[in-house]
């Protein structure tokens, strides 16, 4: 897939209210929308819920797009706003959450339900966690490139950047990713070592206390 299968005329038809064209346009673009959402959403937010929000916005606001060439950057902005809006809600909920006892918010789901990477290997989750630590301008192209066959040209159309810039950002982003994973691994090793030392010092202390008591 070197080019989009939906061309400008189809996007124009979707803007004009052709629901078949709108469905086709959405189907072609929803995967990279998911990548953008992952790049910006809070960890505990459900990807599917956010995709539904974006889908609804596409239906409601599509007619406001004036130029078919600007559709993809517009869709990216819609996705980013949806993810950030959810981030603000999550922060508000975390700051002070009062509930009536026994009252369960209907939209609340467990954190484990929210991560789309549940079925993935531990290594994949670890790399994704590191990728989400990348600066924003590197995070998006690196993740989009991992969608099957999304070309530099397509990524550049979404990000409104020259292809060469996209290629450079992906290359640098991958280097940063290697460094972040390395640092994270070193930190977790140190943490494990500290816990081991703590456990051994505690067992030494209890052993000496027992021997002291026996004396």
């Amino acid at each position: 897939m070197n080019e989009w299968s939906t061309d400008g005329s189809q996007i124009q038809a979707a803007i004009g209210g052709d629901h078949d064209a709108l469905s086709a346009v959405w189907r072609e673009h929803r995967r990279w929308v998911a990548a953008i959402l992952i790049a910006h959403k809070p960890r505990e937010t459900d990807l599917e819920d956010l995709l539904q929000v974006v889908a609804m916005q596409v239906c409601r606001k599509m007619s406001e797009v004036r130029d078919p060439n600007l559709f993809r950057p517009w869709l990216r902005t819609v996705a980013i706003n949806a993810a950030r809006g959810e981030g603000r809600k999550v922060n508000t909920r975390k700051r002070g959450m009062l509930r009536f006892v026994g009252f369960e918010h209907p939209n609340r789901r467990g954190v484990s339900d929210a991560t789309h990477a549940n079925g993935c290997s531990d290594d994949a989750k670890r790399v994704l966690a590191a990728a989400l630590q990348l600066p924003e301008s590197y995070r998006e192209p690196v993740l989009m490139r991992c969608l099957k066959n999304m070309s530099y040209k397509q990524i550049s159309a979404v990000l409104e950047l020259p292809e060469t810039t996209v290629e450079t950002r992906i290359a640098r982003g991958r280097r940063m990713l290697r460094e972040i994973v390395q640092i994270n691994d070193q930190q977790s090793e140190k943490q494990q070592q500290r816990e081991l030392n703590k456990q051994s010092s505690m067992s030494d202390a209890s052993a000496s206390a027992i021997s002291g008591g026996a004396r």
Binding site: R31, A34, H116, N118, A124, V127, C146
Partner: peptide
């Protein structure tokens, strides 16, 4: 690894 997670997202 990232392709695996993006495949799941897709």
């Amino acid at each position: 690894g990232l392709c695996e997670t993006m495949h799941s997202a897709a």
